[in-house]
Design a protein around this nucleic acid. Structure first.
Length: 716
DNA sequence: GCTACAGATGTTTTT
DNA sequence: CATCTGTAGC
């Protein structure tokens, strides 16, 4: 039996409501994850087969965490439960039925960055200037369409109703026609390479379920209970997927917080959570409003910020604890002073015994990190940037992954293009252009065309030989995959291609070269670790007596096997284990964007750059829907703090090399007086030393006066 | 095939 | 201002 005595009334009700559609509105810090895991445990205790439960999350991290917590609660019977991200689930379903959606079994998942390149190439073949129509913008638009569940043919038939093109100018219309054309060609390009992008993992799964009653019904029968975490971040395609999977049973429980929906720009649709009761008729709604994280003052600031938003479930978080310290709001001269102030305060905290790991500095955009980094470094305060540059984004890592992809999937032209002449092997631009044209005429893949380079007109013998050499390099090593471990083959391939020596030779700075080589080795090591993990897993499964016979018609194994294919899928879906992550320690101050901080919490939080045009960001000030999202972002930021919260804004800031006068963020207006201490000057202070000192004294006076006022008139 | 320079661009990024 | 990208020219 699971001990539920630790749950509060609301939480308990959510856990015990196991049948029918259920919406759990879980405010920040209200024990959301607990509810989900306890509810899973409760289901299994009620005798529901673990196999008929499906838990969906958005991130791998959340999925892993849920698995661990569930295991701790109900033991290894969770094994049968499918706990997965939406995308990984899509991948598994597609793996089981690739042909039904026009894929060949060995299809691979692109990692995003390549997609823009594909768009750019398509634009070129359409003779459209990619400076006129930004490929990135088109890619984003296609992605939005896919996230809404709109495929290329639907996109074409919707011509003219694209949301942001309502008042279409001549150029908009041109753009739109181009986008339609590009979408269709993009899909064809992916299909011919046997590749899917992330969005396809949802869209193609939908197509499969729409097209096959048989598969859909089997999956419906299989999952009698479905739970979804972070529901406010789901998109149109995911809603449709849930509809398909639930069917008439509709034991669907979604958990989320509309006020924390901050990924609209990436396709998330708040209307999913706002309209849940309409989408799933008869739904019950439970609100978790007791916050176990933050003090009363912090929560009243948070509530005041979010209250202004239209179109939300009305709710006020209440603190389970004390009022605590008021929130400090101050203005500073410019971003450098801002950073120095923050560093100074952090230093005095750590000197008085606070662990750096209990402190975070959060900002709207990454450029704001630099001055803070400099100031922290100057003060010898240990810090860590979350997010930021990913190992994935490193050029050499992408190049090596391209090698792996071509090795596994010879049709992947886009990957091949990346490395066809890297390291340099005498296949220059002209050669590629000629082969490319010929390939198009003959309807061949690029690698295949290279293998017949001798048939291409106008190539000199040297180029032909180089092309054939490259082809046989891949053929040979692909052949070896049958008899040798992938990691062994990969190592041989990379060294035969001369990757490491090219990295070392083509270096301006030896240290950088060394780092690049190290990044490549890290990737290979990850492949080795992957193989070991799979081997162990297979052994474990073979030893388990009660392992069910392989009857999964519609769901491929979570991860394939110790193959290159499995590794690539794993890589695409769960990313690279960053080598830096192992030096991630919990005694470092965290620097993070607000987005990347969602779900996390710290004792002390500093929110910097609360200015108009930064938060809310300049580019969102035009559309009202987006302004609401900025406000939610501010809300998410504030609710990260447990005990102490400081918000700053700069009266002046460098922007694109110019000093710009700034105004405080509108989100700082109308906050409850009793919960904040304001140390703001609306104008920049004069610069002389004596004047500065005077101002400092003045501020000190204000602090005292403020504190005094708070003490004599306690919160009514 | 590589270097150097001009020109554009400058929000967030779970998969 | 600073960083990245594409291209011209060697």
């Amino acid at each position: 039996m699971v001990d539920m005595s630790g749950l509060n009334q609301e939480q308990l009700e959510a856990v015990l409501t196991t049948n029918g559609p259920l919406l759990v509105l879980a405010g920040a810090g209200s024990g959301k994850t607990r509810v989900i895991t306890f509810r899973l445990a409760k289901l299994i205790n009620n005798g529901v087969s673990p196999k008929s439960v499906l838990c969906l999350t958005f991130t791998n991290k959340a999925a892993t965490e849920m698995k661990e917590r569930a295991r701790a609660l109900v033991g290894k019977s969770v094994r049968g439960t499918t706990i997965s991200t939406f995308h990984a689930l899509g991948a598994r379903i597609l793996r089981a039925h690739p042909e039904a959606v026009g894929l060949r079994p060995s299809f691979t998942i692109t990692d995003g960055a390549e997609q823009v390149g594909t768009i750019r190439r398509i634009l070129r073949t359409l003779r459209i200037d990619d400076r006129k129509f930004d490929p990135k913008r088109i890619m984003a638009q296609l992605s939005q369409a896919k996230n809404a569940g709109i495929d290329a043919s639907a996109f074409r038939s919707m011509e003219g109703v694209l949301p942001h093109l309502v008042e279409a100018s001549q150029e908009d219309e041109e753009y739109q026609l181009a986008a339609i054309e590009v979408y269709e060609r993009y899909e064809l390009a992916l299909q011919s390479q046997n590749v899917v992008d992330f969005d396809d993992l949802l869209l193609l799964t939908l197509r499969l379920l729409h097209g096959s009653d048989e598969v859909r019904n089997r999956l419906r029968d299989r999952w009698q209970y479905i739970m979804v975490d972070e529901y406010q971040d789901t998109n149109g395609a995911q809603l449709e997927l849930l509809r398909q999977l639930t069917g008439p049973m509709k034991n669907l429980c979604v958990v989320g917080d509309d006020d924390q929906s901050i990924y609209g720009w990436r396709g998330a649709d708040v209307r999913n959570i706002l309209g849940f009761e309409k989408h799933f008729v008869g739904a019950k709604k439970i609100m978790l409003l007791t916050n176990y994280r933050s003090t009363g003052h912090i929560l009243s600031v948070a509530n005041a910020i979010i209250e202004h938003n239209p179109g939300r479930y009305e709710k006020r978080l209440r603190s389970a604890g004390h009022d605590g310290e008021p929130v400090h709001i101050s203005s500073v001269e410019d971003e450098e002073v801002e950073a120095e102030e923050v560093a100074r305060k952090i230093l005095s905290l750590t000197e008085s015994g606070v662990s750096p790991g209990d402190i975070a500095v959060l900002f709207r955009s990454n450029v704001q990190a630099r001055p803070v980094e400099l100031a922290l470094r100057a003060s010898h305060i240990p810090y860590r940037m979350v997010g930021g540059l990913n190992l994935f984004d490193r050029r050499e890592v992408k190049d090596v992954i391209a090698y792996l992809r071509v090795l596994h999937n010879p049709d992947e032209d886009q990957a091949l293009r990346r490395i066809v002449n890297w390291p340099p092997r005498g296949i220059g631009d002209t050669t590629i252009k000629r082969v490319d044209n010929w390939a198009r005429e003959e309807q061949l893949g690029l690698l295949e065309a290279l293998s017949r380079a001798d048939e291409v007109d106008g190539l000199n013998p040297r180029s032909v030989a180089a092309a054939l050499g490259l082809v046989s390099l891949f053929d040979e090593h692909r052949h070896r995959l049958n008899s040798q471990k992938s990691s062994t083959v990969v190592k041989k391939l990379l060294s035969a291609a001369g990757v490491e020596s090219a990295l070392l030779a083509g270096a301006d700075d030896p240290a950088a070269a060394e780092r690049r080589v190290e990044n490549v080795r890290a990737l290979v090591r990850q492949l080795e670790r992957y193989e070991q993990r799979m081997k162990k897993k297979q052994k474990n499964e073979a030893m388990e007596v009660d392992v069910e016979p392989e009857e999964d018609l519609d769901l491929a194994p979570e991860i394939e096997n110790a193959s290159l294919e499995g590794f690539l899928a794993d890589l695409a879906l769960t990313g690279i284990e960053d080598a830096r992550r192992k030096d991630e320690r919990d005694d470092q101050v965290v620097l993070s964007t607000i987005h990347a901080a969602k779900g996390l919490e710290w004792l002390h939080v500093y929110l910097i750059g609360w200015e108009e045009e930064l938060l809310p960001h300049r580019r969102t000030l035009l559309e009202h829907a987006e302004l609401a999202e900025e406000r939610r972002l501010a809300y998410v930021a504030v609710t990260r703090a447990k005990k102490y919260l400081t918000i700053t804004w700069a009266r002046r800031r460098q922007r694109f090399g110019q000093n710009v006068e700034r105004q405080p963020s509108r989100f700082l207006e109308n906050l409850p007086d009793e919960s904040v201490i304001r140390l703001e000057d609306k104008v920049n202070p004069p610069k002389t030393e004596s004047e500065e000192r005077e101002i400092a004294r003045d501020w000190l006076g204000k602090i005292r006066a403020n504190l005094e006022a708070k003490r004599t008139t306690p919160k009514s």
